[in-house]
Computed example of a mutant assay.
Amino acid sequence: MNAPVSHASAGSPAEILRAALAGLLDGLPPKVAAQAVDRLIANYRGTTPTDAPILRDRADVAAYAAYRMPATFEAVRAALDAFADAVPEWVPGSHVDVGGGTGAATWAVNATWPEERPVTVLDWADPALALGRELASSNALLRSAEWRRSRIGAALTIGSSDLVTVSYVLGELTETARAEVVDAAAAAAQAVVIVEPGTPDGYARVIAARDRLIGAGFRVAAPCPHSAACPIVPGEDWCHFSARVSRSSLHRQVKGGSLAYEDEKFSYVAATRFPASPVSSRVVRRPQIRKGQVLLDLCSTGERIVRSTVTKRQGALYKEARDASWGDGWPPA
């Protein structure tokens, strides 16, 4: 079975970000970092919605950056990669990152479309904005980004932008505030990408946002092959994907793990006001490789989940199926 692939390579945005993160915990007592991480885990699993900033001080921000930025970056970039495949001729001329904190989604947009553009990161935590600005100074294409304090929720104002991202934010908000944030993004943008943890609750928030975007006139570009109702029955399953994250020694120290990687589960929706070409179907579970056959669970344009069996007799298609990964479009281009 194919494992999720890490995108990092020497000199890539992921490596530049990892280098910029190095040393953040220097001088921070391990107990303080561990306590901050424990609290962040509860928040980012969506169990403690709040109307106050999650990141309160430099210690919180350092722990957040070490614990979450690499995984958030890879999850958002995986979502953006699928979106970019559906709009191959489109490049955002501007970007607003709502609740961007230290800027993981901003880095992911830069990695997907590597050129300088007007970027505004909105967050209500001054320590997060300060550290995000500091980290971005190591990336020549992000040095002109604007880091602006803004309350995320009721009365959120977003300037007109080609692309608005909202990643790992909705779980921090009340249900009413979530709707207001999605509506503000829809009113401001030509394209909206929303990413949440790959849990049943995270998926539910993504589906609610998807419905609001469609109601605002958007069409779904990814991951769904259509803009109709999701065929997954609530409570029986949930749509989510996986991105492999290379873990630095700093990351392993904070998370208490020993492996050189981890798999970040996430749910997402990417929607646009302009034409897009979604895949005809998408692999929504890990392919099952059996002797002489591969089983693919696919979300299809027929608004249903179907299982496709690709056998060795199908030659080149069988080889493609063996190489297929969870989250890929199918059939291959």
Rank of each mutant, 00 (worst) to 15 (best):
N2C: 12
S12P: 11
A33T: 10
A34P: 04
Q35V: 01
A36S: 14
L40N: 09
G46N: 04
D51A: 14
D60Y: 04
P70I: 09
A71H: 00
A71S: 15
A79Q: 06
A84M: 08
E89T: 13
V91K: 14
V91H: 13
H95C: 09
G103I: 02
A108T: 15
V109S: 05
T112P: 10
W113A: 15
D123V: 05
D123Q: 09
D123R: 10
L129G: 00
A130Y: 03
S137D: 13
L142D: 00
A145K: 02
E146G: 10
W147C: 02
R149C: 08
R149Y: 05
R149M: 06
A155W: 09
S160Y: 01
D162I: 01
E172S: 09
E180M: 12
A187M: 07
I194E: 05
G198R: 06
I207S: 11
I207K: 11
D211N: 15
I214N: 04
F218S: 07
F218T: 00
F218N: 02
R219V: 15
E236P: 03
D237P: 06
H240T: 01
R247K: 10
S248Q: 02
S249A: 15
R252F: 04
V269I: 12
A276D: 04
V279L: 10
R285E: 11
K291S: 12
D297M: 10
V310W: 02
K312A: 12
K312E: 14
Y318S: 09
K319Y: 10
E320I: 02
A321W: 02
G327S: 06
A333K: 11
